[in-house]
């Protein structure tokens, strides 16, 4: 991300933000609410319009490109081409309630990647195995618990074989007793694959377990950056100390 800015009307959320995530790296973004961490994920997913700066995925510009001194908006087709490599899991799951679990998972592989239904369904079975919900393949989302829905949402994101996975407070909307299963699934994804992950979470133990690096945000800036062990046990910045004390 280069010089990234995001403004909602007159309200500036991000301004001149720069950071890079390496391929295969897992990075956790922490910070108080309103610090802009979720906005970063949403900008990467093209859910928000970039007000300034550029985002590059593997060297390719995502929504805006530099042409000389000018900043030009890329055509939708180009944006989609790059965006296919990014997946996202939302706080509110956002499963499609009019489709079964299987249909939710195979929708994009079939209609975006052009896989056959059989092929996609076979893969959906594997993924559901992985998240422990194989028997729910033909269930409707409304019949599942929040934790189960979120695991389906993870399977749906993985079905697109993303190179980058964005996890936006994926356990915040869950009852406490359901959080464990979801985190366990994600731990396994982290162990078994080399997908690049950007996560926003308040589960500090989980963040420490899976991430390579933690970024502390405040008022749209990175104020501290460290390995998780260092960040959680021995933060340098005063704001970070306050923040961690408040949530732990």
């Amino acid at each position: 991300m280069e010089d990234v800015a995001k403004r909602f009307g007159k309200n500036t959320v991000l301004d001149g933000l720069n950071f890079t995530v390496e391929r295969g790296e897992r990075v956790t973004l922490i910070g108080p609410s309103g610090s802009g961490k979720t906005t970063i994920l949403r900008l990467l997913m093209t859910l928000e319009e970039l007000s300034g700066g550029y985002i590059y995925v593997d060297g390719d510009p995502l929504t805006y490109a530099k042409r000389g001194n000018r900043r030009v908006k890329l055509p939708n087709k180009e944006v989609t081409r790059i965006r296919k490599r990014i997946g996202m899991v939302f706080q509110q799951f956002n499963l499609f309630p009019n489709m079964t679990v299987c249909e939710n998972i195979i929708e994009a592989p079939v209609h975006v990647l052009g896989q056959s239904k059989e092929e996609a369904r076979a893969k959906a079975v594997d993924l559901l195995d992985q998240v422990g919900l194989r028997d729910k393949i033909d269930a409707h989302p409304s019949s599942l618990s929040g934790g189960q829905q979120q695991r389906v949402a993870i399977a749906r994101a993985l079905a697109m074989e993303p190179e980058i996975l964005l996890l936006d407070e994926v356990t915040s909307a869950l009852d406490p007793e359901l959080v464990g299963d979801v985190l366990e699934v994600l731990r396994e994804v982290a162990r078994e694959t080399d997908i690049t992950m950007l996560l926003v979470t308040h589960e500090m133990q989980f963040a420490q377990d899976v991430s390579h690096r933690v970024l502390m945000f405040d008022e749209g800036r990175v104020i501290e950056e460290a390995k998780p062990e260092v960040m959680f046990n021995n933060p340098e910045h005063e704001r970070t100390k306050q923040f961690l004390q408040a949530i732990l």
């Binding site: 859910l47 997946g87 996202m88 499609f96 929708e107 209609h111």
Partner: peptide, 14 residues
């Protein structure tokens, strides 16, 4: 809900 549109975008559905 907005989430439905966002999920569709995140999956790059046409």
């Amino acid at each position: 809900g907005r989430g439905q549109w966002e999920a569709a975008t995140a999956l790059s559905l046409p």
